[in-house]
Design a protein around this nucleic acid. Structure first.
Lengths: 210, 210, 210, 210
DNA sequence: CATGAATGAGTCTTCATTCAT
DNA sequence: GATGAATGAAGACTCATTCAT
């Protein structure tokens, strides 16, 4: 079936995300991806080196996008005139992006857990905020004066009590609703309150102190 | 090689946990498990119906154990005379058990994320504290009067900002240390502080209010 | 090796008939079939669901063919102007087809005997003459008036003293010749005489009476 | 489980007959036989060399028994004073024995059909009447004067229109009844009539002539 | 005699990948 | 770009047979 150039490629990627999220990378079959994408199995090998290359492409484009959003934010003023407001806007935008990447996040988490995997894509979510924009964000946000230990603590707290709860919420919310018979919206409200009561509260205490 | 009765079976289970954690359930090979266990491949099929049966056995024995610990705690006095102290003891004991189940937890998380899987073993960790001991724990801890909505909020907060951060910490701590060049102990201290600053703080606020 | 479309599929079927006849369905190995067919083992699973699907296809195509021949005969005039002659022609044609299906007949008989098998493909040879063309053949041949009991008797006699001896002759003739040191042709003559003396004689008596 | 000596052996043989008849020799599993016999799998190897040895034992004891009955008949007078009557008695006795060997007959037929098998146990049923008692039966029944060709014709007719229909009747009668909704007894009557009308008729013509 | 445990050699089936068109 | 056909390498699972007790 002839399509727009590159359309097939995108269909394959979209299908791959879906199947990988359904069965996990190892459980996914190239046939299923081809079927889901509505293309011939061999065509996948025309566009990609192999199964793993699809996964890589998926991960890379996700982090490219993430980085892009962050850079955009920094470029277009960063914390500029209205730091609080700007940051809130960016976070909302990024949160929304993550929510739309539910399937990919699942894959990222699953692959991050395997002992055999060298890298842990999940940590990119931390690196992003840290290493990706060191000289810029760091200076701005943290008035430079921050020991290595303080940074570590910051990262740990952000990751384990901020990022991961949110990631878990995104990837588990449908299952949670099905299992406990809740509505998506109710769970959303509950989760917001939960974060408000814990992580957000921590931020308020922290920022308020000095 | 003849061994003590049931020894081979245990070796197989132990090997399976390890390999599953390394490669994921789908990525694990029966040969590898046999090799790791030092038993003949066919022997695996003598003790188990197949690959999936091993996984099930693993999950079941984990939740059997978990339930056992909780029941023991309730039986032997529950919150008895010194509720705070007793609860802290149990939590420490259970936390320690979870830490020792790192590999299994990885598998549980990975399998919980797959869309194709009907059940979400992760939620058992919630069910455990909830449904397993409703009339006892509930009454004691929560003065009975608690609406459905309040319970939902409680579960959501506990799970996403209490259980999951801890689970994530357990399954990611070695990778975190390798990735960020931290010592296990330092990470442990950081994580404790992070929980103290967020989830524990929430509990204090909550209990302190009334 | 690329071949004409469907050629591989046919080669596989032909090879399967041969191997099944040699070792029986259960004794046959997919490798052997692939080897005999000169195709890659995996290709068998490209064309068929599995071993059993091959057997089914074989059986179905045999009975499709058989039914086709019978229907052709009926369509093209049936007992038309020269009933006796037409019938004789059809029988000769069908007998010749059966002779050429020697291997498949072996398989049919073997599978028909297993207690575990629900259906008895052998009986299709009876159903064929009966149910496949009820309103046509029946009326013509048997002047309609025939009680259930008479029909039963007819089927039993036809099957056990007509069909089965012929089937047994086809599937055992080579073994008989080897065992008793007879020539195929001599056995053929003997078998014709045997049938002439028994089953044919019965038909003559039956038709002659009224 | 301790039993009478040799009891286990018999149980194994009986179980083997049943399972072989159900699934065919190749389809039968040693485990199933052990299960059916209610003995440990390894015990089978105490009594028999292996799977094939069981089959051989089964076949041998069947033909030993058959030969025994025939010899008994010959020894105790053969066609003696009342040839017709004696022969009829023997045939009835032997027919009854065959009927009771339904499962074994199935196995014999199935194994006889496989191209790979050197010998054709089915033919033993012919050999029995022929070679087993050449100088005795032959002389008596056939007044010696009988050419090789005549003998061949005799065997062919006996086997394909006498023995095989009967064997087929025995091994297929339950399936026939289930398939066509007939009662065992009705089928029995029909079959007797069928044989009467064909094979028996042939005998009458043959004996009556001279 | 009897058995639970163990094993080597298969045996069916799957799958990522490639080829020819 | 696209596809039906083909394949090597593995993968899960089986099975007759043996061993130690």
């Amino acid at each position: 079936m002839k399509r727009q150039p590159e359309e097939s490629r995108d269909r394959i990627l979209a299908a791959a995300v879906k199947i990988f999220a359904e069965k996990g990378y190892n459980g996914a079959r190239i046939d299923q991806i081809a079927g889901e994408a509505g293309v011939n199995k061999a065509l996948i090998y025309y566009y990609f080196e192999g199964k793993e290359a699809i996964l890589n492409e998926l991960f890379q484009s996700f982090f490219r996008q993430s980085t892009g959003m962050l850079l955009d934010f920094v470029e277009r003023g960063g914390f500029g005139e209205n730091p609080e407001e700007n940051k809130r806007l960016f976070e909302a935008e990024y949160a929304s992006y993550l929510m739309s990447s539910r399937d990919l996040l699942k894959i990222i988490v699953m692959e991050s857990l395997k002992d055999e995997n060298e890298d842990t894509p999940l940590f990119n979510l931390v690196d992003l905020g840290g290493s990706a924009t060191p000289e810029r964000l760091d200076d701005m946000e943290s008035q430079t004066g921050m020991s290595e230990a303080e940074k570590n603590q910051l990262y740990v707290t952000e990751f384990f009590t901020g990022v991961m709860p949110f990631v878990c919420y995104i990837v588990l919310k449908d299952k949670w609703c099905r299992h406990f018979g809740m509505e998506e919206e109710e769970l959303g409200r509950c989760f917001d309150i939960a974060m408000e009561d814990t992580h957000e509260q921590y931020h308020k205490n922290r920022d308020g102190k000095p």
